[in-house]
Amino acid sequence: MIGSINILDILKPELICAIVRVTPTHYLYVAGIVFCIGLMGVMIRRNAIAILMSIELMLNAVNIVLIAGGRAYGPKTYDASSFVIFIIAVAAAEAIVGLALILAAYRHMKDINIDDMSIMKW
């Protein structure tokens, strides 16, 4: 499926028309873009809180894939939805733990630059 994507196709008129009719593939594109933004955020940002926010983005990208997939192909049950609920709950918990860790680190070194938190190497 990824292989069939041709970037220039989006410029064709019939395709533009097709965009109006949203297919599961579109959701995948959105989710892929959001995931990549999140990933880049995690890789590039030095601010710990920004990294945490980027992780949230990545998680939510996965949520989009799950919901779309479950709606389009899955049986008419709530399997995918329940996964998503779990992920949201876990993400909330992770955010709490992550923020608490950042707060503790901040109190310790008056800074939340992730590059400075490398004292445990070796």
Partner: peptide, 17 residues
């Protein structure tokens, strides 16, 4: 091999990705 352990978490993320 301990040279690999830089302690910079973003390097790990990049490598993993």
């Amino acid at each position: 091999v301990r040279r690999i352990q830089t302690g910079l978490i973003q390097e790990y993320v990049i490598v993993a990705s």
